[in-house]
Design a protein around this nucleic acid. Structure first.
Lengths: 132, 132
DNA sequence: ATGCTAAATTAGCCTAGGCTAACAAAAATT
DNA sequence: AATTTTTGTTAGCCTAGGCTAATTTAGCAT
């Protein structure tokens, strides 16, 4: 379907994914706290994501990602991880790198992302000198 | 005063600055065209910037930056230039670098910007041996 | 000078994405 | 089991930042 999400919806999707990966139930309250917004904002966002077929939710229960939502969330998270480690490599502190990565992940073009990826790669684990 | 501008207002301010630097009169029409928005949107933005004391405008005439607006616009533009050349150095094409810089310029923390600056600098003119 | 065109403004609509307040359901405590 | 607390939902407000349509002004050409 390739629905282009807003930054805000991307954030919600990503957060749901992170919570689920930690084995937690992604409850409205948790999402709200994690993103520093209020519960009704989360409810609205979830309604949107449901309409887009990216998540499912039984009333008054936790949120689950659909296959498609899973894929999309994973891609966002990958961008986040890439960007954070990139910034860290430039010497930016963990905390700030995380915050800035969080903004950048929504806006950078595929080309820029791929160049950043290339920049990060070349430091491969050193050509294993002997020793197994 | 240190008013924190929205991304959108930063864009308007920056564009006005660019037009003025090219010696052009920054007319509503020009700004609208340059930013791909309609004139009424520009009018609204200018009204805001006026309230903030960043620009002046006689009714039905071109827009001028105030001292403060000038300073702020220059800082935005500097960020833009820094980021664009940074991306270019990473191998991103001119066009995309420009577009992505345009987004990044509004969101990156001071820390990240300074680290990027450091990354770009190291090409200093070689440590003048001797000589004063 | 008059009238036409282009530019600027104003009024008012729309959407996204926050919020609060009020209510409903579920969970936990007693 | 009843009550309280927590969580979820709904209704409805607000703002920023776009837009269109309608009006006003300015700048030219005739």
């Amino acid at each position: 379907m390739e629905t282009k999400l807003s930054q805000s919806l991307e954030d919600y999707l990503e957060m749901i994914h992170m919570l689920r990966m930690e084995g937690k139930v992604a409850r409205v309250k948790d999402i709200a706290d994690a993103l520093s917004v209020k519960m009704p904002s989360v409810a609205k966002a979830i309604a949107e994501l449901k309409k887009l077929g990216l998540v499912t939710q039984e009333p008054y229960a936790g949120v689950e990602l659909t296959k498609e939502g899973e894929v999309m969330a994973a891609s966002i998270l990958n961008r986040h991880i890439l960007l954070k480690s990139f910034l860290t490599r430039l010497g930016v502190s963990e905390e700030v790198a995380d915050k800035d990565a969080c903004c950048m992940e929504h806006i950078l073009s595929a080309e820029t992302l791929s160049k950043i990826e290339s920049f990060m790669k070349p430091v491969r684990p050193a050509p294993k000198r002997r020793k197994r």
